[in-house]
């Protein structure tokens, strides 16, 4: 079976982002960009399926600017076979991305699509569920364990109260949570090899998809700042503050 893994290029999780002074968005110029951490986990899972002989090909796809090719290269260096860049400079909202992915699924015919559960820039946590809806496929979101069998995949999901296990008929969509695996670092030889792997570039129009945003961002603001408080000398002083000043115990 083929596995498709959508990966997003986002501001690196270590960067302390800055809101633009005019409130139009977040500063992304001259900021370190990386693959969305959840997507690294998704790529790792797909590559492991291939190494286990369950997947025949791992295709990575990104919807974004030309620079997002770097993100595809990272995924190729981790072991994916080929990449697809759906090139657009527009803001990519989950519904539009899901429509692009649906068109690619129709074209490529994967049996499994593994996405990240959430992009750490928009924090939407929507695209996988939307893609599953558009395809009419079952969805195993927030996966912490994936066991691919014949005709079905068993997914253990992280839910608020603990864990839930579902069995999904293939083809299916899975979204990766933090504990699914620990993604590998690409080795230097694999980084070199990845340079030769193919990347195809497409336009959203060529897929017949309108990627215009449905939501308009009117304003982006800084959250209210919390003031740093005081340091207390010892446990007795802490208890005194909590009782008599904050009155929370």
């Amino acid at each position: 079976m083929k596995v498709l893994v959508p990966v997003k290029r986002v501001v690196d999780y270590n960067v302390k982002i800055r809101v633009k002074a005019d409130g139009s968005g977040v500063e992304t110029a001259n900021v370190k960009m990386s693959m969305n951490p959840f997507d690294e986990i998704a790529v790792e899972e797909a590559v492991r399926l291939k190494e286990a002989g369950k997947a025949t090909e791992v295709i990575v796809v990104t919807v974004g600017p030309t620079a997002a090719q770097e993100t595809l290269r990272t995924a190729l260096a981790m072991g994916a076979d080929r990449g697809i860049l759906v090139q657009t400079d527009a803001e990519t909202q989950p519904l539009a991305v899901a429509k692009v992915l649906k068109a690619l699924v129709d074209k490529e015919g994967p049996t499994l699509v593994i996405l990240g559960k959430q992009a750490i820039d928009d924090d939407c946590n929507q695209t996988g569920q939307m893609l599953a809806a558009l395809l009419g496929w079952p969805q195993g979101t927030f996966a912490s364990k994936v066991v691919a069998g014949d005709g079905a995949v068993t997914v253990t999901r992280e839910i608020d109260g603990g864990l839930e296990t579902v069995e999904l008929t293939l083809p299916a969509v899975v979204t990766a949570d933090l504990r699914l695996n620990e993604p590998r670092y690409a080795s230097l030889p694999n980084i070199m090899k990845a340079k030769k792997k193919p990347i195809e570039t497409l336009a959203p129009d060529a897929l017949g998809v309108d990627v215009a945003p449905r939501l308009t961002t009117l304003k982006v603001a800084e959250p209210p700042k919390r003031k740093a408080g005081v340091k207390v000398a010892d446990v007795a002083a802490l208890v005194d503050k909590l009782k008599n000043e904050a009155r929370v115990i």
């Binding site: 982002i17 977040v26 924090d123 449905r214 939501l215 961002t217 982006v220 603001a221 959250p223």
Partner: peptide
């Protein structure tokens, strides 16, 4: 029109749906 946190709550976006 709604407010929602983005970037791990380091920014608050006001978004309008059509």
């Amino acid at each position: 029109t709604f407010e929602r946190p983005i970037y791990a709550g380091n920014a608050i976006a006001t978004v309008k749906s059509a």
